[in-house]
Amino acid sequence: MPNNPPSILDRSADKAAALTPARMSRSIKGLSDRAVAWWFIAPTIILLLAINIFPLIWAVKLSFTNYRANRLNAEVKDVGLRNYERILTDPDIWQAMQATAHFVFWTILLQTLIGFALAYLIDRKFRGHAFWTTVILIPMMLSPAVVGNFWRFLYQPQIGLFNYIVTFFTGAEPSSFQMLGSVDLAPWAIVIVDTWMWTPYVMLICLAGLRSIPDYIYEAAEVDRASNWRRFWSITLPMALPFIMLAVLFRGIENFKMFDMVMLLTGGGPGSTTEVASITLKREAFEKWRTGYSSAFAIILFVAVFGLANIYVKALNRVKQR
């Protein structure tokens, strides 16, 4: 730049802009630009290392030992891969994984179907659609703890509204079934609550997807004599698909580590029918105090979620590429 002949672009503002970084870097006690940049991001990096990366590495290390956090003086032995072996053959763990799979699969399926349907209806822009959007979003804004407690009352066999609604439609006696107390119904009870709470979120993302489809695409399709049915299948759905997939990803990760709401609703019961992975993990780590064992379980969960999410993001990118 210094050797270039002066051009029209060399106005005073440009000159000032070109000069400033050099002067500044000299004035901050001889620090180079790079050093200054490092100083700016250092707090974030240190924080990340301290509360994310270090515990992760530490957990990996503990997962190869028989360490117990409640016995600080006990000898810590290296047990190699024994924790991992035991987890992968532990029927309780597999039971928890099954409960988690049931919960994740059905919540995602229901939330995606209902959320997309609601978004599709609201995108029709009927009268009062803004009001109804707000109403639909309310459950999502509550805290999971509130929702958990709230639904425990709704599910009460004697006084709960839920049983009365079911009675209204089916004629069954309200106290003849217990949503939270029955081994058959409890897994569905938690699915219903999560769906009630998070469908609005899926709807919101789907709505963004639907709104991103420009009107003229539909006009072109209309002139091209595509039926409503075909317009939906060959335009609406494929063009909203990346958004739907994103919603599924967010909900999937979120529900894989579900803890608070289920803990408050059923505490994992009855028996261990609703004991999803995070609850099992919490039991192993902070009730049975098998720190090494539960670290290994946490690592397995982490690798599983991370791997699945990665595969999924690749698929998502392929869909977006089209």
Binding site: Y216, I217, E219, A220, V223, D224, R225, A226, S227, M239
Partner: peptide, 30 residues
Amino acid sequence: SQRDVSFVFQQYSLYPHLSVRDNLAFPLKS
């Protein structure tokens, strides 16, 4: 759709998620 016209829009309104081939075939699949 009842008028049997074809329209070239001012802003080329292609179906962005379809290939060129599928864009061209779209009106024929009615």
